[in-house]
Design a protein around this nucleic acid. Sequence first.
DNA 1: ATGAAAGCGCTAACAG
DNA 2: CTGTTAGCGCTTTCAT
Lengths: 335, 335
Amino acid sequence: MSAATVSRVLNGKSEKYRISKKTQDIINKAAKELNYSPNQLARSLRLKRSNTIAYINPDISNPFFSSIGKSIVKYARASGYSIVLCDSEENTEMEISLIKTMLEHKVDGLIISPVGLKYAHLLELHKRKFPIVLLDRYFPKVDIPYVTSDNYQGALEAVSLLIESGHTCIACIQGLKNTSPNNDRVNGYIDAFRKYGLSVDNEYIIGESFGEENGYIETKLLLKRKNVPTAIFAVSNLISLGALRALKEEKYMVPDDISVISFDDQPYSQFLSTPMTTVTQQSFQIGQIAAKMIIDQIASKGNIEQRSILLPTRIILRGSVKSRHSHKKTGMHKI
Amino acid sequence: MSAATVSRVLNGKSEKYRISKKTQDIINKAAKELNYSPNQLARSLRLKRSNTIAYINPDISNPFFSSIGKSIVKYARASGYSIVLCDSEENTEMEISLIKTMLEHKVDGLIISPVGLKYAHLLELHKRKFPIVLLDRYFPKVDIPYVTSDNYQGALEAVSLLIESGHTCIACIQGLKNTSPNNDRVNGYIDAFRKYGLSVDNEYIIGESFGEENGYIETKLLLKRKNVPTAIFAVSNLISLGALRALKEEKYMVPDDISVISFDDQPYSQFLSTPMTTVTQQSFQIGQIAAKMIIDQIASKGNIEQRSILLPTRIILRGSVKSRHSHKKTGMHKI
DNA sequence: ATGAAAGCGCTAACAG
DNA sequence: CTGTTAGCGCTTTCAT
């Protein structure tokens, strides 16, 4: 048996090449006996296609990204693709280096939740028609397809809820600046004030990273101000966790002393000492849509014109927001 | 310039081959101008080494595994290795299939948190001297190096704490049966009873998966029994979250109506409606050690005799365990 | 219905 | 100091 015939049989092309049933049997049997397994490196080298997609995100230990990663893996696998998960550590240099590595490994496409501060390296790929889709973070006015939540609308609703509950001094603890989810959420915060004819005090828009530490530090500082806000809008789940840590240390009670509303719902959100009112994203769907988009791009060799997707968020009312009008709380129930 | 010379220069072997400074400059400049990037597929094919390690685990969206994944990635990267993160979905068939795929992709080694029910496929790799290290879950009496926490000791201490607090009817909600962390934790539970001369009632060892749903269902059932336990030992963080959900629905208060102690500390554990007393693992170290071990194995071509590592756990006292002796609670503080 | 040969991009042995 | 050659394992065209 020549290598050629073996290759044809093992790749299910017996029909096409009209390989005799007998030869097929011999080859299949031998393959099984020898425990043959093809060398995908050689295969990919020859085929110029690896059936592999990379998903690069800023922090794989953040449950938001890891659950999205999981949904991407699941969908892609069902379509015959392997996913390699990469962690850029919220660092643009690392991101660039990872992309380089992935390209050298000849992945067929790239799903990326970019750090979000620079896009030249991404735009270049897209222009070269290399399949790429952005997830969660995108670049306004830059034409690379993305999937993300409607962060602006989510924030607008969250802060509107706070305002309608009678809060006017509301701190916004933001994440990494100049990053789309951050900008959109902060803009939602600002426009909520506008909507109600209130003025925004920039002194209360603080913070600079999506991490826990940032929420902690900013809240610590916040509580030392002359005018302590009556509510906090935390732009990520990690930020709200940090805020809670500071609040606890300083013996502030939620929501009696201060209300909190947070982006990103998590399994534990409902069990926090006061169940957290959150704006939840459809993370599973985000991952799946991204996977589908990248696979379509690969199939069309980057010649498809793809529209970006914005998914709605939803507010989950729990007990962390207190109404300042009467003395009852806004929210469904508090344990 | 011949390809050979280019290869030598670009791989930093100019010294060794005494390439002229001039040639080096020409090549480096050209490489930069042409934006040359090597094809790692071809390189790996030729070299029979990919500088890639796979980490296969049962659930990448579980923060325990994703944070371990992160530490592996970090350490491996510093040593020049890329990590491919894979999710076996707590399914042995999937695990076997992933391993096959990874071998076909010629990874240099394998770190795996196996589903834990079968090991023949893993043992075979180890016997063939393929670099492999188990993480979190291992197989007693099977000689494959592993890194994990001292789950037995951790459980022993946790349940001892419960017993010393006056509890005798303690439910153990376990995870996937016949899995090492589960067995070790359940044995710790059993031996704690023995240590105090108490008898174990197998009716209170229940459950069958590490997931949230399992904790929920088993707790629901538990609360309908004639003898409702006064304490729950939850074998994983997800299980305790599920237990909390059931407890809340059934209007049981922690720790006044029922005490809870859980394996795995998480950032949110201290902020739960009653801060959870947990047994914490050194997950960052576990990941780093596993990475170091696999890299050593790769370097020695599987000819190194490696000892397995057991890391100590630690109990973090918070408010979810109540003493039944006097009326004060065991634990440091409860918000 | 099958085989021979070429080539994917790279590196190492050998030659000079 | 640099080039030539061979070959890693695979698939596909071309030939028969």
